[in-house]
């Protein structure tokens, strides 16, 4: 299937600004899904609120555009009732880790089979450029006009600590790596986190004098490096890209299935002994 078969063409051109990284995430995600060969009906995309969250409107899967910070909670409910479906949950950095931070760490801890994508542009793009928990120390935003004194989360370290069984990071510049990591994350059985560093030229770029979308992509190219590279040893400030964690762990829905079976057997035995109180 061509990637155009996976989108709702009637809503294009999309609403994102010229050069917005979120469109590049959509592009990479569609290529990953096409390569795996998933059927549109097997996929549920759940998003919250933000420029990033608008992605759910453009894909021709089952989709839910829900409320700010709660995409993972909705996705958890869907997955529990229909575990055979593939859940993809794209979120903005604010959506995932400010208002949605608690949902995020607990979803990771449970290891429910779904793919969380953090479209990290380090800003609240949709509401006009307020700082987020990923903006970082020294950045400018409408809510830190004299520079930000908050430190940023490291999405990878946070996800690893919270127990995610697949953790990856890449940037919009690295289009092929993005499609590759997203594909592996989707196939992985367990909670997958993929951080994609994405450019918001309109807010973060302008406020921090980072130039055009092209300049911001050049910045991703120059300031990131594959995990464990020699360049990283020489320059510890480089941000590593690649797959950090990919491990087998008991998955939540499969474990819950076992609990149901165990409970059924117990109830059945009780019934045969004449205890009816469970009915």
């Amino acid at each position: 299937m061509a990637i155009r078969d996976y989108i709702r063409e009637r809503f294009f051109p999309h609403i994102w600004c010229p050069g917005c990284g979120h469109g590049m995430v959509l592009n990479g995600l569609l290529r990953a899904i096409e390569k795996i060969g998933l059927d549109k009906n097997e996929i549920v995309m759940v998003s919250g609120i933000g420029c990033s969250a608008r992605i759910a409107g453009y894909v021709d899967f089952h989709t839910m555009h829900t409320i700010h910070g709660r995409a993972l909670a909705f996705a958890t409910g869907i997955k529990m009732s229909r575990p055979e479906l593939k859940l993809i949950v794209p979120m903005g950095d604010g959506d995932a880790l400010a208002i949605g931070g608690n949902h995020f760490i607990h979803a990771a801890r449970r290891n429910m089979d779904m793919t969380a994508i953090v479209m990290n542009n380090r800003v609240y793009g949709m509401t006009g450029g307020q700082y987020s928990p990923l903006s970082g120390y020294g950045t400018m935003s409408t809510t830190s006009p004299y520079s930000n004194i908050d430190h940023a989360f490291d999405v990878v370290e946070l996800s690893v600590a919270a127990g995610a069984s697949f953790v990856g990071r890449t940037t919009t510049y690295h289009a092929k790596q993005m499609a590759d990591i997203l594909g592996q994350a989707i196939i992985h059985k367990g909670f997958s986190v993929v951080e994609i560093m994405s450019q918001c030229p309109t807010c973060f770029g302008r406020q921090n004098r980072l130039g055009s979308a092209i300049d911001m992509l050049e910045h991703f190219k120059e300031n990131t490096t594959p995990i464990g590279s020699k360049a990283k040893q020489k320059n510890p400030d480089l941000i590593e890209r690649g797959i950090f964690v990919q491990k087998k762990m008991p998955e939540y829905c499969s474990e819950y299935e076992k609990i149901i079976e165990r409970a059924m057997v117990t109830v059945h035995h009780r019934d045969r002994r004449g205890h009816r109180e469970y009915n």
Partner: peptide
């Protein structure tokens, strides 16, 4: 195909 893979607007 780098242009096709990177275009934010498909």
């Amino acid at each position: 195909k780098l242009c096709e893979f990177r275009c934010p607007d498909l």
